[in-house]
């Protein structure tokens, strides 16, 4: 029991430690993601810089990544993702899901 307790404490404590992470840029323009396919290193955290070049807001969303964030019009924002095991992780713009689609490939 004590061992499990220590593991939980260590997990939560190490959670508060931040580290330098690579930045990957993605742009929303005319309700499309550019690039729509992003390749990132597997098992490594990355900082996603989302630039919304449209006048209207968009919500970056991914069920596979557990991420959801509103990016207001003509603005930029940061979303941290990973570390991800190798695989494909689709994402989409919730406000324009038919056009705003993309995928993150961790390899």
């Amino acid at each position: 029991m004590k061992k499990y307790f220590m593991v939980v404490i260590a997990l939560l404590a190490s959670s508060l430690v931040a580290a330098k992470t690579p930045i990957i840029e993605i742009t929303i323009k005319d309700h499309l993601f550019y690039p729509s396919e992003l390749v990132i290193p597997a098992d490594k955290k990355v900082k996603l810089l989302v630039i919304n070049a449209d006048e209207t807001a968009e919500e970056f969303e991914s069920y596979e990544l557990n991420r959801e964030k509103i990016i207001t019009g003509n603005s930029k924002s940061i979303i941290f993702i990973g570390p991800l095991p190798a695989g494909r992780y689709p994402f989409f713009g919730e406000f324009y899901p038919k056009t705003a689609q993309g995928v993150i490939i961790a390899q």
Partner: peptide, 24 residues
């Protein structure tokens, strides 16, 4: 989940993946 997204908490791989049985 929001604090993980903001990198306030360090991210670890997901504990399980039940999307095959029940998609979110």
């Amino acid at each position: 989940s929001l604090l993980l997204q903001a990198d306030v908490l360090h991210s670890y791989p997901a504990l399980w993946n039940s999307s095959e049985y029940l998609a979110e």
